[in-house]
């Protein structure tokens, strides 16, 4: 798997007889030879004669092989729940309250302590030990009335978080010695950030619930994932790492996931371009995308060598209007749904 053995592999492939199947690429041929030596040992005599007899040059149509990078920032926070999930979880919580054994208060609060007094006051208010199911007494005669009415906010996660924080604040204020100042417990950070409100698509601090992908804009104005041709004697992964450094700069802490591409895109020219020098027919480009994750840093096009204009961090749906339809239909299945 490591790229260090590449040279050794090539030497070994020269020494060993090869299976000349035009559909199988160079490295795969080596794999085939290496893995089933028993079957390969029987074949080489006939194969080598057939390759030796073809003396006239066969001109094959040629594609440019590109290495692309699907650089992504994974989701940072949990997703928003759907209406049904909120209602379902809330119903299950109240149902649990009815079916579970009562809260063992004596184990958590010593009698006569300020915490105990605080607890008594709270339980009088909300009638249950749970802090996130609203005012509901599971042991009363009216326990059957456990459904929320229209417009109730108890099932909303924001409301539940607020209740938990207020409960903690009340405990801190009731049990502290110093009654003059009020303690403030920090609220969780908002789930919608400033970049979301401004729709700043260059920021990595946006769409925290979704996976973001790096898109770059070429000189001609086309948007695409960063990619560049694979050079001679370069593996796909090395080419992808080089592409990333050449396009979005080195100011990023990235991790390439594995050594295999996760998707590919084939672009055919309208008319094949014939190279005058050696008579090869150039049909188009094939781009293989490697998966990568960004850990820290930010893309920077200042030092790019591909004349790129702009970059954006976009979710899967936001990519669709920016890229060509054919391109999107090729890459969409390798992009994460969330």
């Amino acid at each position: 798997m490591s790229s260090g053995s590449n040279g050794a592999r090539r030497i070994a492939s020269v020494l060993r007889p090869s299976i000349a199947d035009p559909k199988v690429c160079r490295s795969c041929q080596e794999t085939l030879v290496r893995r089933n030596y028993s079957s390969a040992a029987a074949q080489p005599s006939s194969e080598s004669t057939s390759t030796a007899t073809t003396t006239f040059p066969v001109v094959k149509p040629v594609y440019t092989i590109n290495a692309g990078v699907a650089l992504s920032r994974p989701p940072q926070i949990t997703r928003d729940l759907s209406q049904f999930e909120k209602a379902y979880y809330f119903y299950q919580k109240r149902l649990n309250e009815r079916l579970a054994l009562p809260f063992t208060k004596y184990f958590y609060f010593k009698r006569g302590t300020p915490a105990d007094e605080d607890w008594k006051r709270k339980i009088r208010e909300r009638q249950t030990a749970a802090r996130d199911i609203g005012k509901y007494n599971a042991y009363s005669k009216d326990a059957w009335n456990d459904e929320l009415l229209v417009g109730a906010v108890e099932a909303e996660p924001e409301h539940q978080v607020e209740m938990l924080v207020q409960d903690a604040e009340a405990t801190v204020n009731a049990t502290s010695q110093d009654t003059s100042k009020k303690e403030e417990i920090p609220r969780p950070f908002p789930r919608v950030t400033e970049a979301d409100q401004k729709n700043d698509q260059r920021s990595l601090n946006r769409a925290l619930q979704r996976t973001l992908y790096l898109l770059v804009q070429t000189k001609e104005g086309y948007w695409r994932l960063p990619s560049s041709p694979v050079e001679q004697d370069e593996t796909l992964r090395l080419a992808a790492e080089r592409t990333l450094a050449q396009t979005a700069g080195v100011n990023m802490n990235t991790w390439m996931v594995g050594f295999h591409p996760v998707g590919h895109h084939v672009y055919n020219f309208r008319y094949p371009r014939v190279d005058k020098a050696n008579g090869t027919e150039h049909l188009g480009e094939k781009t293989f995308f490697m998966k990568a994750r960004i850990m820290a840093g930010q893309a920077d096009l200042a030092a790019n060598t591909q004349n790129l204009q702009d970059f954006k961090w976009l979710t899967k749906e936001e990519i669709a209007p920016y890229v060509l339809p054919q391109y999107y239909s090729n890459i969409k299945n390798m992009l994460a749904e969330r």
Binding site: I19, D21, K23, V24, C25, C28, Q29, T31, L32, R35, N36, S39, P74, P75, T211, V257, G258, H260, V262, K291, R293, A336, R338
Partner: peptide, 21 residues
């Protein structure tokens, strides 16, 4: 579901070329 599973799948992929037995 969103991150780990797909990364493991990519990391553990083994390519078997056509004709591989």
């Amino acid at each position: 579901q969103s991150t780990v599973a797909s990364d493991i799948l990519t990391l553990c992929y083994v390519h078997n070329p056509p004709g591989f037995k």
